[in-house]
Design a protein around this nucleic acid. Sequence first.
DNA 1: TTTAATTTTCAAAAAGTTTTGAAAGTTTAA
DNA 2: TTAAACTTTCAAAACTTTTTGAAAATTAAA
Lengths: 168, 168
Amino acid sequence: MELAAARQKFIDTWGRLGSEWGINRTMAQVHALLLISPEPVTTEEVMSQLSISRGNANMTLRDLISWGLVEKQHRPGERKEYFFADKDAWNIARQVAKERKKRELEPMLRVLNELAEVKGDEKDAHFKTFHNSVTDIRSLAQNANKTIDTMVKAEENWFWSTFFKLFK
Amino acid sequence: MELAAARQKFIDTWGRLGSEWGINRTMAQVHALLLISPEPVTTEEVMSQLSISRGNANMTLRDLISWGLVEKQHRPGERKEYFFADKDAWNIARQVAKERKKRELEPMLRVLNELAEVKGDEKDAHFKTFHNSVTDIRSLAQNANKTIDTMVKAEENWFWSTFFKLFK
DNA sequence: TTTAATTTTCAAAAAGTTTTGAAAGTTTAA
DNA sequence: TTAAACTTTCAAAACTTTTTGAAAATTAAA
């Protein structure tokens, strides 16, 4: 395979993966493009390389920035903004885990805590099943939360850095 | 909060969570309903409790079965089918991880392996960046794969069962 | 200042996904 | 067999999400 075809396949695959995981396809594709671009890239280049509109490119790049996956670069004497992505896979995974924890896991835990407080008739099978399922899922969610904390803080941590970098 | 309202909130929350994670909302809601139902439930009950059509209920239940999250129950002398879900959160998490590995991670690894093989000019910055990103992401994906294998096989394994059940 | 380059916004259009419901198919009891 | 009870299918409709593109806003250099 030629490099050009391979780059395209990488962009497509990353895009498909994103949409399977609740991330919009274009956002994942723009991220993929930045991951394989040696130099920071302008909005124009994103637009032309992925054949998307200016509005789309702009919004997507801002989203990626809000996810902490992409940064802007200023160049003196130039009005244009350049964008680049952190290319370290482990940093990317950590950043995504951190954001999803904040955006999804924590709000869900708040709901589960509230639902676990609901009182009812201990003899009612509906109540018992509800309460058991809610508290059981909550304990799993709490563990996931702690695990992600560990992972996020694992900058120099022996366990994770060894564990995840073992086979690099 | 009353049990009825709490049940509804649980169903809604689980449904929202599903759609944030690339699982269709109704499928997650049906799963939630089964999680808090003490007895197996019929298609009719799913339809009326969630106000969805027969077609939708049928397809969704079949999807849940194909994900290994729900099972059918036959009752002698009855034509109707009853459905129930495994209610253990850890089993659910394992099952979802296992399916997503098979459906998404493994196909992605095949693409990454192919792309990591692409040869090019070692002095070309585009080639170098491409190759580094692909191999780096591949090693992360391989680790995720191994981690999920461990997790799936961890039926009686001390590490995971301790780790995830510690705070139950 | 002014102006031209660039970014941002957002309503409308396009694309994608999910749901419906009626008809076709299947199964089982009698 | 037959027929009633139930399940499955799928094209069309409803709904949701994403994308476009032109206009408005902003910025920095001159």
